[in-house]
Design a protein around this nucleic acid. Structure first.
Length: 226
DNA sequence: TAAGTGACTTTTC
DNA sequence: AGAAAAGCCACTT
C-alpha cells in the first residue's frame, strides 16, 4: 500500500477520473501521486494508477517517460505535475462541440481528425471507416484541402503502411515528420511508425454516437505477421 | 460526357 | 521486402 492505494476507478457524472501511468519503484511517480492529492477534492477527481509494466503496449508507448498524467487519450503532463497544465485542462471541460452529424464530408473528416490525441496517429482508411461514407482517398483529399494554420492535426494522419504519404507538390512531409517527432512519435529506419505503439484506437464511444460515426478496429490490426 | 488526377489501399509479382 | 498494377470515387477539365 502506499501512495497508490487510494484508487477508486469508479467514474460517475460528478467525478472525473484521470489516469496516471506509473511504474513501481519510481520516485517521480510517487511524487506525482502525492502532488495530486490536493486536486482530488478541489476538482472532484479520482485517479486510476496504471502500471505500464503490466501492458507491453503501454510499456512501449511510455518507456521510461513515466509518470504521465492523462485524461482518457489526452496527455496532460509527464514527469512532474504541472499545475498550469492540469488547471487549464480541467478548466476547459466537456465542451460539447456541435455535432457534425449531417455536416459536409470534409467537415466531418476534419472533426474526426481533431479527435486524434497528441502523440498518436491514424490512417486515412481508418478515418474513412469512422466517417462511414468516405474512402481513404477522400480523406486524403480532405487533408489536402486544409488551409495553412488549420487547427486540424493533419500530421497525425498516415497511410496504411505507417508512412508519410508524399504530396503531389513534392514537399511537406519533412514538416510532418518533424511535427510528429516533436510529439514523441518515433520512426524506424525505413521511416515507418509502429501502430502497436502510437496507433489511435478511435474516438470515444460517446463522441461516435453524438456525431453519427462508427467504431472501427484501429490501424495496423491484422497487419502484423501472424 | 470522357478522361485525367489525387496527402489511398490491397493484391500480385 | 519492395515495386507495380489494379481498384477506387469524387472532382476537375
Amino acid at each position: 500500500m502506499g501512495v497508490y492505494a487510494r484508487r477508486p476507478p469508479r467514474p460517475n457524472m460528478l467525478q472525473r477520473t484521470l489516469t496516471v501511468y506509473i511504474r513501481q519503484h519510481c520516485h517521480l511517480c510517487t511524487e506525482m501521486a502525492r502532488a495530486l492529492v490536493p486536486y482530488q477534492q478541489r476538482f472532484a477527481l479520482s485517479f486510476e494508477f496504471v502500471d505500464v509494466d503490466e501492458d507491453p503496449v503501454l510499456c512501449a508507448r511510455y518507456g521510461e517517460k513515466v509518470p504521465v498524467l492523462a485524461d482518457g487519450e489526452q496527455e496532460i503532463c509527464q514527469f512532474f505535475l504541472s499545475d498550469q497544465a492540469l488547471v487549464e485542462h480541467l478548466g476547459t471541460p466537456v465542451r460539447a462541440p456541435a455535432s457534425v452529424s449531417g455536416a459536409p464530408r470534409n467537415e466531418r473528416i476534419h472533426a474526426i481528425a481533431r479527435q486524434i490525441p497528441k502523440g498518436r496517429v491514424a490512417t486515412y482508411g481508418q478515418l474513412a471507416a469512422i466517417e462511414g461514407r468516405s474512402t481513404a482517398r477522400m480523406v486524403g483529399n480532405a487533408m489536402a484541402a486544409l488551409p495553412a494554420g488549420s487547427d486540424v492535426p493533419w500530421q497525425r494522419v498516415l497511410n496504411s503502411r505507417g508512412m508519410l504519404s508524399p504530396r503531389s507538390g513534392g514537399g511537406g512531409t519533412s514538416e510532418q515528420k518533424r511535427a510528429l517527432m516533436a510529439e514523441g512519435v518515433l520512426f524506424d529506419r525505413r521511416d515507418r511508425v509502429d501502430f502497436a505503439v502510437v496507433g489511435w484506437s478511435g474516438p470515444e464511444p460517446q463522441w461516435l454516437a453524438d456525431n453519427d460515426c462508427h467504431h472501427t478496429p484501429p490501424a495496423g490490426v491484422s497487419r502484423g505477421k501472424h
